[in-house]
């Protein structure tokens, strides 16, 4: 589409012209940039710890340099591939299943015409988000125990044999995904509910007069209307694929299902932070960040190419 191209045209203007024309905008940007420079970029010198055998008592200047030693330790660790795979699968499921669900949930909410019902459902659906992870995980562990209600239900339906579902590596991904949706669906759809609100009512009216059905209007008006928000969120999500909610896994997993439940953050927690190995955990963090950044840039580029929507 040609509409997305004006930025391309302005590229041809010189920096001088750009600054002269937009100096007001740049002035506006100064405080924001300054803020991020101090509070976000300021501490980033700490990333050099990734290349050090960091000892708190010696500080960053005094600690020994180990080059890529910390990274190599991580790549060579016996569980490296397991935790990388688990991290990708768990956050990938969150992306490919969870994300469409939250958009869908927002659309479904929008279809409700009873105002009090709509308000109530919205309020209620975000409640589990506030229940602490420890309480939630306690409930999940109870439900999935060999006598728990979920197990009872599944046994009655003939889906599983009687067992503790959390002691079987095969079920962890499903348990984690479903419980994640239970706790976060309402909360994560708020963004989209708000975006739908901004879609112009006039367009809907016009389409309705033209005889477009509900489904058609959702497809041709609502969805394109919230596309910028959906794409933004999707790209940002791709930039967090290497990050999995740490508290939840830590509270839910157990040693007998490490093979599917252990993720990078929990693994580093056990090996690094517990032993005060700051260099090592910084290295793993940096590795994660780099992969995340690559994923985000790729998602952004893909999105730019196919949907003319991008973060930059």
């Amino acid at each position: 589409m040609k509409a997305a191209k004006p930025s391309g045209r302005s590229d041809r203007s010189t920096w001088g012209m750009d600054i002269r024309r937009n100096y007001k905008l740049y002035l506006l940007a100064v405080p924001v940039v300054l803020f991020f420079a101090i509070f976000n970029y300021g501490p980033m010198f700490g990333l050099v710890m990734a290349f050090q055998d960091f000892k708190p008592t010696r500080g960053i200047l005094g600690s020994a340099w180990v080059g890529f030693g910390n990274f190599i330790d991580f790549f060579k660790s016996p569980n490296f591939f397991t935790v990388i795979r688990n991290t990708f699968v768990i956050s990938g499921l969150g992306l490919f299943v969870g994300f469409p669900l939250s958009v869908g949930f927002a659309l479904l909410i929008n279809e409700i015409r009873l105002k009090w019902f709509k308000k109530t459902v919205q309020t209620i659906s975000y409640m589990p988000y506030f229940v602490s992870v420890i309480v939630m995980c306690g409930l999940i562990i109870d439900f999935c125990s060999s006598q728990g209600i979920v197990t009872n239900l599944l046994v009655r339906l003939g889906i599983v044999e009687r067992q503790n579902l959390l002691q079987n590596p095969d079920y962890f991904w499903a348990i984690n995904l479903i419980s994640d949706q239970w706790q976060n669906l309402g909360y994560s759809s708020i963004v989209f509910i708000a975006a739908i609100t901004n879609v112009s009512g006039e367009l809907h009216e016009a389409a309705a007069i033209d005889g477009a059905g509900r489904l058609k209007r959702v497809w041709h008006i609502t969805l394109p209307g919230i596309k910028p928000m959906v794409v933004t969120m999707l790209i940002l999500k791709c930039g967090t694929l290497m990050t999995v909610g740490f508290d939840k896994i830590l509270n839910l997993y157990n040693t007998s299902i490490y093979s599917t439940a252990d993720v990078i953050s929990t693994y580093v927690y056990r090996t690094g932070i517990n032993g005060g190995q700051y260099g090592y955990s910084t290295a793993v963090g940096l590795f994660n960040s780099v992969v995340n950044l690559i994923l985000l840039l790729a998602a952004n580029a893909l999105s730019k190419k196919y949907s003319e929507q991008a973060l930059f």
Binding site: C137, I141, N164, N254, T255
Partner: peptide
């Protein structure tokens, strides 16, 4: 206890 392994907390 049949569920012992899941009670890490």
């Amino acid at each position: 206890y049949q569920d012992f392994a899941s009670r890490t907390n």
